[in-house]
């Protein structure tokens, strides 16, 4: 990786060898150390990442494909999968729009109270999921402040789908915004300003100038937001009511199966989420790779 300095290479051969050697020593680690470091990194990742993933996939398919398939299409499991997809379809777009809008306001303008706003956006990240659930039960539960009013208007939020969406929206709010804010701050606003000076309107500027610049951060943010929305457990457990086939999301259904001693089925549904995690990661790597290639093509 380290390129030899051409200036050094062009000096007389008698001098080059020792100094190149010294140069290597000074800008690179010795081979044994490299190998050790790679070994440490791979061991660490194997213990903490590969093994758990292997457990999930192995246990899911241990008893064959048919058992796996039956666990997935079982009506309660299918309902949990549908509910999870529905929640994600609502929550992720909303938080995507929020993330872009908030990043625009924060990165492109200077105003007072900005750091407070950023703190508020980061806040859900620091709050325990179970506290999120608790907050909404206190506010909207039938013993809570808004509960009686909601009940008298026949509106069901807690222990129904809207409550699940609410806590998941809360928990995943920062992901897109957090990816975009530093990115857009770093890119500055010169490009947008020149586009506007050249006569483009605000929308055109956003679509043609800003969006291409933030595309990769945006996708990464959406991917993280989506993954977290699908996997949220603690907050949903508090507000879901665990009605089978109706308010059990996939993670809750996995817990249910686990508690019914149906371990293979529990791991089968888990394997879906794990597969989704892998697809997520694959998409992300692909985006990165495209980006990298585009960059090198530009440079050449």
């Amino acid at each position: 990786m380290t390129t030899l300095n051409p200036a050094l290479g062009s000096s007389s051969p008698a001098q080059t060898r020792p100094s190149a050697h010294a140069w290597h020593r000074a800008t690179e680690e010795p081979a044994w150390l490299r190998r050790t470091l790679i070994g440490i990194a791979l061991t660490f990742l194997t213990i903490f990442l590969v093994l758990p993933l292997t457990v999930v996939l192995y246990s899911a398919f241990e008893q064959g494909l048919r058992v796996w398939y039956e666990a997935i299409v079982e009506p309660d499991a299918a309902a949990a999968i549908r509910l999870t997809l529905l929640v994600v379809l609502v929550v992720v777009p909303v938080n995507l729009v929020f993330g872009v809008v908030a990043a625009w306001a924060i990165a492109k303008f200077e105003f007072r109270g900005k750091s407070l706003l950023i703190t508020l956006i980061d806040l859900p990240f620091a709050i325990s999921p179970v506290v999120v659930g608790l907050i909404f039960v206190i506010l909207l539960g039938s013993q809570g402040w808004l509960g009686p009013w909601l009940a008298s208007n026949e509106m069901r939020i807690i222990f129904a789908v809207p409550g699940i969406m609410l806590v998941i929206a809360f928990g995943t709010l920062p992901f897109v915004a957090r990816e975009l804010i530093p990115l857009m701050q770093q890119q500055g606003k010169e490009e947008e300003e020149s586009s506007l000076t050249l006569g483009a309107n605000g929308w055109q500027t956003f679509w043609r100038v800003t969006l291409p610049n933030i595309k990769w951060g945006l996708i990464y943010g959406v991917i993280l937001c989506n993954a977290r929305a699908m996997g949220e457990f603690g907050a949903v457990a508090v507000v879901s009511g665990r009605i089978r086939g109706e308010t059990n999301t996939m993670p809750l259904h996995i817990e249910v199966l686990y508690n019914e001693y149906m371990f293979t089925a529990a791991f089968a549904v888990s394997s879906l989420l794990a597969a989704l995690a892998l697809v997520t990661i694959a998409v992300k790597s692909f985006v990165e790779w495209r980006e990298e290639r585009a960059r090198t093509a530009q440079q050449n």
Binding site: L37, I38, L45, L49, L53, L224, I254
Partner: peptide, 27 residues
């Protein structure tokens, strides 16, 4: 450093972000 499988290893790092916590706990 360069080593075989680096890209896969790099991608795998995101796994805890993407894998639901309950699944991780059981695993």
């Amino acid at each position: 450093y360069r080593f075989t499988g680096k890209r896969i290893v790099d991608a795998l790092v995101d796994l805890p972000f993407a894998m639901p916590t309950a699944v991780a706990g059981i695993a």
